[in-house]
Nucleic acid binder design. Structure first.
Length: 457
DNA sequence: TTTTGAGTTGTTCGA
DNA sequence: GTCGAACAACTCAAA
């Protein structure tokens, strides 16, 4: 008689340590690990595809090569696979995103039709979306009170939490005995990010914890420095779970700032869980009347923005870093986002889509609600008059121009402060002049916001 | 129910 | 060079 068997279907929790779904699958008996390669993902940029493929490879290595890849629509592939291998249960980490919920509902329905079930265990968040509520049971819409309640709800749970024990005796039943499609292709990229394995992510965390975290609140805003954890891709793909980080934090100001960033991640996941349509629609409907440019000139400007040839060095440096590595420093993300929305007057969705395509850590909730914040359409929106000045941001956060020269080599020989805004004779011949005048576009943005207010009254 | 204080990340201007 | 005020009005959250 064969032993009972379950399928562990990996999606965005690409780890084995501290994975509740694995413990549950193991309790069912033999475990068949599955990853479904979704054709929709092939639209992503090379660094993003490379990181996911590398994470899967590292995961598979830990399972002795047992990971089964199948290509296609999960709603068809997963139930068929469960029937093929004779598994009654498919265990997953729960996905709270709009696409993931639709997908999982479809999969669960088809599994149920065959007398099987989808079992969701755990999530990639410190506190699951939908959990943090006000006294009247409704969700928070402002970050600061959310984060206080998040901490109040979370801390007792985290204190009594036991990391899921290492599962050393799992009997993996998978490839090569089970037929397998190929893994996703691994494009070559030159990445400065930590490699995509659990061991290297843990090493990076240990290094950051001992060397960088205590100065996090000071150094995290300087893009030339290694002042951030750079663990966002590991968190995005579930190579690490946020509680593995929170467990190590102490009652220190810099640690609290770092934890607050993890609270932002949970906050935006919660907002998107409550309002799934806000992935691509304004959270604040009154902002729908905002005038944005979408004509041919707008498309040309958008192309210049994506390719890093706006003539604003800090913007171009960030956009080039994104294309080259799949990552961009957070301070620079805010600067380029403000530039797209308030200097170029383009729809925030254009920028969000580009980021999602290229960012290795691109997460729909954090990314798109971050963009909504920048555009003033979202939760906790920035006041309309808060318009980033790309030159003064550059002077303030990259005072020596080190980041600029690293990513915009045309500026290598521009000395002193001119590197932040090389104009006239100081501009190298191969570096473009500014595509717009910031002062003029700032006024234009303020004018548009004001006329919106007048129209609303 | 009403009131009150507050709200991630900024810039500019004038004294 | 430094500093405070202005830039609006609204919504949220809790007392």
């Amino acid at each position: 008689m064969t032993r009972a068997r379950s399928i562990l279907w990996f999606r965005r929790d690409l780890r084995l340590d501290d994975l509740p779904a694995l413990a549950v699958a193991h309790a069912h008996g033999d475990v068949t690990p599955l990853f479904v390669v979704d054709p929709a993902f092939s639209a992503s940029g090379a660094p993003r595809r490379a990181f996911m493929a590398a994470a899967l490879q590292a995961l598979d290595d830990r399972m002795g090569g047992a990971l089964v890849y199948r290509h296609g629509d999960p709603a068809a592939v997963v139930p068929a696979f469960a029937a093929e291998v004779g598994a009654d249960v498919v265990v997953v980490s729960r996905d709270f995103g709009p696409y993931g919920r639709r997908r999982d509902a479809a999969v669960a329905e088809r599994l149920a039709a065959d007398g099987r079930r989808l079992q969701g265990v755990g999530s990639p968040y410190a506190v699951d979306p939908g959990t943090v509520v006000k006294n009247d049971g409704t969700p928070y819409a402002v970050f600061t009170p959310f984060s206080k309640a998040w901490l109040a709800v979370g801390q007792p749970r985290w204190a009594e939490r036991r990391a899921t024990p290492a599962v050393g005796d799992v009997n993996w039943v998978g490839a090569p005995d089970i037929a397998c499609d190929g893994p996703p292709a691994v494009p070559a990229v030159d990445s400065t990010l930590p490699p995509a394995s659990e061991a290297s992510a843990r090493d990076r965390w240990a290094e950051f914890l001992s060397e960088g975290l205590d100065q996090y609140d000071d150094r995290r805003n300087q893009p030339a420095l290694d002042g951030t954890s750079r663990l966002s891709p590991a968190l995005r793909w579930g190579i690490l779970h946020p509680l593995q980080l929170i467990d190590d934090l102490g009652p220190v100001r810099a640690h609290e700032v770092f934890r607050s960033e993890l609270a932002w991640r949970d906050f935006y996941a919660d907002v998107l869980f409550r309002r799934p349509e806000t992935a691509w629609e304004n959270l604040q409907p009154k902002m729908d009347a905002m005038v944005v440019d979408t004509d041919a000139r707008a498309k040309e400007r958008f192309a210049a923005w994506t390719e890093g040839r706006t003539g604003y060095p800090i913007v171009d440096a960030g956009m080039r870093q994104l294309l080259a590595t799949g990552w961009m420093h957070n301070r620079v993300r805010m600067i380029v986002a403000s530039f797209l929305v308030k200097d170029l007057h383009l729809p925030w969705q254009w920028g969000a889509r580009h980021f999602m395509r290229h960012l290795v850590d691109g997460d729909l909730a954090s990314n798109n609600h971050g963009w909504q914040w920048a555009a003033g359409t979202g939760t906790d929106a920035a006041p309309y008059f808060r318009v980033f000045n790309p030159t003064s941001q550059s002077e303030r956060f990259d005072p020596d121009g080190e980041y600029l020269r690293r990513w915009v080599p045309e500026l290598r020989d521009v000395g002193g402060v001119a590197v932040h805004a090389p104009d006239g004779l100081l501009r190298p011949a191969d570096y473009p002049p500014p595509i717009v005048d910031h002062a003029a576009e700032r006024d234009e943005a303020l004018r548009r916001y004001k006329s919106l207010g007048a129209a609303a009254r």
